[in-house]
Each structure stands twice: as C-alpha cells, then as structure tokens.
C-alpha cells in the first residue's frame, strides 16, 4: 500500500521535474526579444483589429509604427488624429493630421428606380454573383444588393435597407476602416471627407453608359449631361465616361449642382431644408434625409 503511494508520488514528481526542465530549456532556446514599446503602442490603439490601416491587426500595426523611422504615411482610421497624436508622442515621431472620412454608398438604384430584369439564383454574396454576371438589373455598375459590405463591416455601421435593397452607412458608427470599400466588387463605396457637421455632396451613381442607356436601366442614373459642371463655381466636378464625379478636395458644399441634376443623381446629406423657392430640390433634400437614415 505505502509502496504504491510512494511510487506514484515519485513518478509524478519525476515527470513534473522533467516537464519543467524541458519547458525551461525551450523557453531559453527560443526566446524572442519583444520591444516593450510595441505593447505600449498597442495599448493606445483601438484594438478593433479591423485591418483598416493595412496591417493585419492592431499588434502588427503597433510593430510597424515602432519599427518604421517615418510614420507619416501610417494612419489608424479608427482611432483617427487623436490616437495618432498619442502614438506620436509616445514614440517621439511626427504624424500628419488627416481629415476624418466616412463611407458613402454611390448608388441609388433601389428596386423602384432600377427594375430587375432577371432573377439570380446562387450564393447570395456580391463577390460570387459579380463573377457570374452583371447583376439582376440592366446596370452593370450599380449595387448588387447582396450585402458583402455589410458583412465586412466590423462595427455594425452598415445595414441593408429592406425597402431599397441598398446598403446604408450609419455615419456615427463608421470608423472609415475601409473594409466595405474592399469588399465591394463594384467599387461603389467611397471614403469621403467628413467635413464640418458631416455635410457631403456626391454623385450617387457610377454608370458609365451613355445617357439614354443609363437612364433606361435606372431612372436616377447619372447621364453625364454636364449641367452640374456648368453651375459649379469651383471646378470641382469632372465628367469622364459619361459620368460626373465631385472632387471633395475642391467642393465647397455650395449645393448649386444638386437642383440642376435632371436625374436627381447628386446626393446631399445633413443640409438644412432648402427655402421654398425650389420645390423640386426641397423634396429631393427631404428624400436624402430619409435615405441616409442615420444622418438625422
């Protein structure tokens, strides 16, 4: 009896010691020096691990920040300027301030204005359906409506609007990490500067077809008529391939282009309602308020 107790105690003790020895040797042999600075920087970062900075996670980004001499081209979109300032202080390096941006969906092709001409059967992800064909509508540039962007968003800042079949960005939650931009096979989502009070004016269309064809596919398509170009005082609008684009760097948010657009394809958000003198634009502004949901 005592023998067996003693035996087991000895055996276990021996095994334990052996294991401890192995662990000790292995940890010595494979010791990796870890810059404590990386840990400190990592703590400053938002720990969202969204990969919006281009690194696979916050830890990897912290490593990059610590190791690179010049960090002026590194930016954490989630933490924004504040976090980057703290990081710069901690590291004693320089950062460049960036304008905060927010994701916008550049397609207004709801089921009503952009009729479906075919039915798609297959896995409901944009990546696959874009590979198979140009989509259920006649517009080969617009939103496919399968919500890859929503699935990619790690901050619950997007949802699919059941009524329109289009994704909606909840501006307050958007960290501009850019995952949705990457997920969209049609490049519909763009990061645009979040100017004061989140005022934005942008073209909600990417259709490069000629006017008539674009309009037949979708009644709110940009037809490249260049009316907006004519009224823009700052030359912020370029028209290429029958499609207008408003460059946020030049746009002063004067709103002149919005009412002249014959297809209502220019979107303005968060502006106060217009004065009575232009009823068309007024209803449009109202529409937009509803469409961008969160902006209210």
């Amino acid at each position: 009896m005592t023998d067996s107790i003693l035996n087991s105690v000895l055996l276990l003790a021996g095994l334990g010691t052996l294991a401890a020895l192995i662990l000790y040797l292995v940890s010595k042999r494979f010791y990796v020096f870890d810059d404590p600075m990386i840990g400190r920087v990592e703590e400053l970062l938002p720990a969202a691990n969204c990969a919006g900075c281009g690194s696979p996670g916050c830890r990897a980004f912290a490593e990059k920040l610590v190791k690179s001499e010049d960090i002026s081209d590194l930016f954490c979109p989630v933490g924004g300027n504040e976090v980057m300032k703290l990081v710069a202080e901690a590291l004693g390096k320089e950062v460049v301030e960036k304008d905060p941006t927010v994701a916008v969906v550049r397609c207004q092709g709801s089921c009503e204005v952009r009729p479906k001409t075919t039915v798609y059967q297959g896995p409901r992800t944009c990546a696959i359906s874009a590979l198979i064909y140009s989509g259920e509508t006649d517009c080969q540039y617009g939103c496919l409506g399968d919500g890859d962007c929503v699935a990619a968003c790690k901050f619950d800042a997007m949802y699919m609007d059941e009524a329109t079949g289009l994704p909606v960005v909840i501006t307050d939650k958007c960290t501009s990490c850019g995952m949705c931009v990457e997920a969209c096979p049609r490049d519909i989502i763009e990061m645009r500067p979040k100017k004061k009070r989140d005022l934005k004016i942008y073209v909600g269309c990417l259709n490069e077809e000629k006017g008539g064809i674009a309009k037949r596919a979708c009644s709110v398509a940009c037809i490249g008529c260049s009316k907006c170009l004519d009224v823009c005082p700052k030359e912020a609008i370029v028209i290429e391939n029958n499609l207008a684009y408003i460059d946020p760097a030049y746009c002063t948010l004067c709103r002149k282009c919005v009412p002249v657009c014959p297809t209502h394809s220019i979107i303005e958000t968060n502006f106060p309602p217009r004065k009575e003198k232009n009823p068309v634009a007024d209803t449009l502004a109202g529409d937009q308020g509803v469409k961008s949901g969160s902006d209210a």
Binding site: G122, P123, A127, I128, L131, I132
Partner: peptide, 11 residues
C-alpha cells in the same frame, strides 16, 4: 452550389 464557390475560390 459547390462549383459557384469553387469558381470564386479559383479566381
């Protein structure tokens, strides 16, 4: 939809 996914995976 096996082939749908495989085709995508290939791409």
């Amino acid at each position: 939809p096996l082939l749908d996914y495989i085709r995508f995976g290939k791409s």
